[in-house]
Design a binder for these strands. Structure first.
Lengths: 260, 260
DNA sequence: AATCATGTATCATTATTTGAACCGCTATAT
DNA sequence: ATATAGCGGTTCAAATAATGATACATGATT
């Protein structure tokens, strides 16, 4: 493991619930030597990737991300192409619609919108990572994404979030194969009690899934009919998005989607 | 120079005008060994900080920035606090208003909006870096920011963009001292012919400038009266923003601003 | 066929990373 | 007021990982 990898790994510890991390705290979290962590942190800070709370001296994500995210979006304008599609879906379905991309440790938000007006809603943290094994987005991504992604993820450990969460590699592999043959992933309270979701992938120019769009609802609203209807809506959206992005839905997927 | 710093430095080569960079190209740009660059690039790619164009194999900024920028904004919600103020200024002044933060090599955009309706406008690339020495934002930042920033910047080299650009450390230092005493920075075609601007800082809890707000206009519209009026507007905006951010305008600046 | 690009592999040299001990500061407890 | 514990930060010799030169496979372009 290169020093660069280890240093960059520090950035992954930040989240909504852990926005600032001090030196000692970091050494515990990482089990690296304190001097080592300190050198990593100062290198990251000097480049603007971290920033220090002047009062507590604790580190937090730095201003470099503002600019680099802007350059990234100009280079690959994913968010600006995906957002209108998600917004339209949310408006049409009145549910929580979420577009996501894979990262190492889970699916990360591209854009989301809750189209629900009143009543029961699904809570959601747009800056978090959704686990691959316990969400419809994650399973859809593993089913239709790059084989290396599947290999990496399946060899890891899996947390049990609810009674319904599968944590055995065998079960997950089987589930993923089923998803591949059915053309979409449907989750029934795998991650959170009372939340169901469906997810479909969108593809790059080589027919490899780039990311997913999913719709989450309270379990009470996810009847078979409702699910079927959402899947049909998502087929249209993902087909359109794939084409907008200059991608290609693989022939076998295209055929499954046409006969749903 | 640590390996981490060198590897992170690669990310700074990306910009709107250079969105993708291949391996050979990178080795030329950096003067590092090809093997070394390759190792850096794969480390960055594996962590999601880079991403490869599947066709050309060239590298571009990766999806990690989308998520980390979101976490950063939750941690330190600068953009969401600054944006409404900038938008309001743009609407009121009908000019290009820009909020910026310092990075190593220049001022980077927090948010901007061109409030002009028709007529001559100032062009602007929101994902770029504005040089410290040739913009009102940069000079204002150096005048009111952390002394270390000034030291680092002043010891570097300066590009001459127009006839009006000062490139001597002495001249710049003098100019910065003048700005410190007058409470604002005014640029007259330092960076681009025909573009004038004024900039004022906003401050953190210790009275160190965090960033700047500037307004740019065509030279033809920047009369002394117009400039005075814009400065007054910016005094209000920066005072308000500083307070919104929980910061403190230093007493000496506060007094200058009150007597403009 | 020749050129240029990415990526892979090896390996002695060298420079960087490492980790334990140490320092100075602050807050809390005795 | 005096110890103590926890924090961020520093130092330096020893261990290790990064480096860069060389060489080669491969595919795209000319």
């Amino acid at each position: 493991m290169s020093t660069v990898t280890k240093a960059l790994g520090l950035l992954e510890y930040f989240s909504k619930s852990r926005p600032e991390i001090g030196l000692s705290n970091f050494t515990q979290l990482t089990n690296f030597d304190k001097g080592t962590v300190f050198r990593y942190l100062t290198a990251l800070r000097d480049q603007g990737f971290l920033d220090q709370n002047p009062l507590t001296k604790a580190y937090r994500l730095g201003p470099a991300f503002i600019r680099l995210a802007a350059v990234r979006e100009i280079t690959v304008p994913l968010v600006s192409l995906v957002a209108p599609i998600v917004d339209r879906l949310a408006e049409d379905t009145h549910e929580l619609v979420h577009a996501a991309l894979p990262q190492m440790k889970g699916m990360s938000t591209l854009h989301y919108l809750d189209g629900g007006h009143g009543g029961i809603r699904v809570g959601f943290n747009g800056a978090g990572l959704l686990p691959f094994h316990a969400t419809s987005s994650g399973i859809a991504m593993l089913a239709f994404g790059h084989p290396d992604l599947f290999k990496n993820v399946i060899s890891g450990e899996f947390e049990k979030f609810t009674d319904q969460t599968s944590v055995q590699a065998n079960d997950l592999t089987q589930r993923i194969e089923y998803v591949r043959s059915s053309g979409f992933a449907a989750a029934n309270q795998w991650f959170e009690a009372d939340v169901c979701s469906v997810a479909l992938p969108f593809f790059d120019g080589k027919g490899i899934a780039l990311g997913t769009i999913s719709i989450a609802t309270p379990a009470s609203r996810m009847s078979d009919d409702a699910r079927t209807s959402l899947v049909h809506t998502l087929v249209h959206a993902c087909t359109a998005l794939t084409s907008t992005l200059g991608g290609q839905v693989p022939a076998y997927v295209s055929s499954i989607w046409a006969h749903l």
